[in-house]
Design a protein around this nucleic acid. Structure first.
Lengths: 206, 206
DNA sequence: CAATAATTTGGTTAATCGATCAAATCATTT
DNA sequence: AAATGATTTGATCGATTAACCAAATTATTG
């Protein structure tokens, strides 16, 4: 099983180069979008030759996949670190919402790059990433559902469909990334506060 | 001001041909996505030559813009027709949520085509459509905000930030289009019911 | 220092794309 | 049926792209 496809040990310099290329890819995606983010453009941003990208990544899909996992991992870390400092389900829910909005506010270019990949990249079978049932557990979705379940078990929260409630919360959060009119009209803290109050009314027992 | 850019009178056959091309574009976008939806592929779907598309539309952007307005108009009609039969803000909100989810459930191909355009098309200045503050009033967003305002004025609803609440509702609805795991786990009627109950708890005075 | 492996480059290639044009066909009017 | 304008086609052009390769350069090891 010693295939060359799995991530074997990479040299230090190789990892540094890969990180540099990913960084250039993120910036390029943010600035000119996936369609125009050709190997040549990414190479120019990194000030290297295009062939060097091909040397470190199998092809463009490989680069984009790796960039996507880095972006998802970065966002997950940020949010999960902050939810895990809270103790009660009620406080964890607040931390989850506030951290998610804050991440969007602090690293908008990361989210733009994320969106560009998710809505452009496709599998070998031409299935778009945004249509994929992420078989792998999405840690952010799992965390939110666990918070809601814990809240119900501890009788802090009332009765509701956990999957539906979690989806509504995620949708409300994501709306802040996509809707520029919203983004430009309400600052992140205010929107966080509104969402927390809104969903407290929806989940808390009266 | 008699420019040729505005939609002058089109002949009957020209309108029919444009509608046929738009239909082929929607099917192509749904089936293979924007990136692979070349003029050649759309022409093949419509069983016409590529040059005929160029004859009826200025360029590919023109075709995609026109297709987008048709899709938005179709969705708006569907939802607005159903909200306007309800009378009280409370019932209008229910109708709005149910109609929005039902539209997604009934015409998934239309929503896929819509997504493909919004997340791929860009202006001449390379600004992606999904980043545009739609200067033009979005009738669906306006309607929802008006429902919420009316509910507060009639004291049916309590106090909350209307823009934030409207965004949360829209985000929760849109989540049903984007999240395949949600889509595959909960049927549209059930999700509608959950959302209605959820947002009733959030907006109604106690 | 010699040799070997890893890294990097410039240049090439084949494929695909949107757009354009002259010519062909069809419909309408005179 | 002749003439005119609208519609449609096939063919072609220039531009862009991802991928590839042989050669050059740099780092590592014996």
């Amino acid at each position: 099983m010693r295939t060359k496809k799995t991530d074997e040990k990479k040299s230090f310099i190789s990892e540094a180069r890969r990180a540099q290329i990913v960084d250039a890819a993120i910036k390029t995606l943010d600035e000119i979008g996936y369609i125009h983010a050709s190997m040549a453009q990414i190479a120019k941003k990194a000030e290297i030759s295009t062939a060097l990208i091909s040397y470190h990544f199998k092809d463009k899909n490989d680069l984009m996949d790796y960039t996507l996992t880095q972006l998802l991992s970065d966002m997950s870390s940020y949010v999960l670190e902050r939810t895990q400092t809270a103790t009660t389900p009620r406080d964890k829910l607040r931390a989850y919402i506030e951290a998610s909005i804050a991440y969007h506010a602090n690293k908008p270019e990361y989210n733009i790059a994320l969106i560009e990949i998710v809505f452009h990249a496709r599998t070998a079978n031409n299935v778009p990433y945004y249509k994929l049932d992420d078989d792998e557990e999405n840690p952010l979705e799992s965390e939110l559902q666990q918070i809601l379940v814990a809240g119900q078990e501890k009788k802090e929260f009332g009765k509701f469909n956990v999957l539906a409630m979690a989806s509504a919360i995620r949708g409300a959060i994501d709306e802040y990334i996509f809707n520029r009119k919203l983004n430009g009209s309400i600052d992140p803290q205010s929107y966080s506060t509104e969402l927390v109050n809104l969903f407290y009314r929806a989940v808390l027992r009266e």
